[in-house]
Amino acid sequence: MSMCMLSWIRRQDFQILTVGTFTYTSDQRFQAIHRENSDDWSLQISYPRKKDAGIYECQISTMPKMSLFIQLNVVVSRAKIVEGPTLYLSSGSTLNLTCMVKDTPEPPDYIFWYYNGQVINYGSPRGIKVHTEKSAQTISKLIILKAQANDSGNYSCTPSNAEPAHIAVHIQNNANPAASIQHGKRSASREYNNGNGCQQLYRSSFIVTILTSLIMALFL
């Protein structure tokens, strides 16, 4: 009597993934798990991806064949930068970015911060700090003291087990906004003088004319 074999099949493309404990596909992320003297067979998928979602068939080579169908849903874990997607700061301010990672089966092994595509050097004497707290909702904070205009750019938070998050940071010199404000005040003052000021002068002249007419009437 021949021994029955158990196979795992991906129904999306009818790809045979495993036969017994042998991985039949070239994608080595798939592996059949079976303990000796046990009737339990499991299909293990390492580092599951969104495209792995779908129906899987557990098939036993009996006559007739027996099958069990299982629907796999893959939740894509994503990071989120709270201050995003765009942040404006004045030069000399503290740049504080908070990255939240949730909906992950376990906390990420690491979280890297990138600036314009390059890993940020946490040991820089510039006063760059990163603090990470791992839990059901992992939080990582990037702090740059006395940020300058040349710290403007694209920042990314990249966890080991989630999609990265991005933010565009714009740091402006203090002189430019102040000059703009002063210019705005001067413009407003000129508009007042050319508009409401003329109206005020007209009303004053009108009142003087009335008073002059009353005085003349009293003496006639």
Rank of each mutant, 00 (worst) to 15 (best):
A147W: 02
S135P: 03
I181F: 01
S67W: 02
L68V: 13
Y192D: 06
L17K: 02
I143R: 08
M5S: 15
H183K: 15
L6V: 15
R186F: 15
G197C: 05
R126M: 08
E133K: 09
Y202F: 13
Q44M: 15
E133Y: 07
T23S: 08
G92L: 02
T138Q: 03
A188W: 11
G117Y: 02
I128K: 02
Y114S: 05
H170I: 02
V74G: 06
W41K: 03
L17I: 09
S91V: 02
S2W: 10
L17F: 00
N121D: 14
N173L: 10
K50A: 12
E163R: 05
N116F: 01
H34A: 13
A188D: 12
N96V: 04
H34I: 12
S90D: 08
W113G: 01
T158G: 01
T138P: 02
E163H: 08
L214H: 06
Y24L: 10
A165C: 12
Q71L: 15
G20Q: 08
K102L: 04
I111K: 04
D13N: 10
Q71E: 15
P85N: 13
P48Q: 06
G84R: 03
S67G: 06
I81W: 05
E106H: 11
Y122M: 13
S91F: 03
L218Q: 06
Q59R: 14
F30N: 04
F219G: 00
G123F: 07
F69E: 01
S93L: 05
Q15T: 14
C58F: 10
I143W: 03
I128N: 06
M63S: 15
C99P: 06
R11W: 01
G195I: 02
E106Y: 10
H131E: 13
Q71P: 12
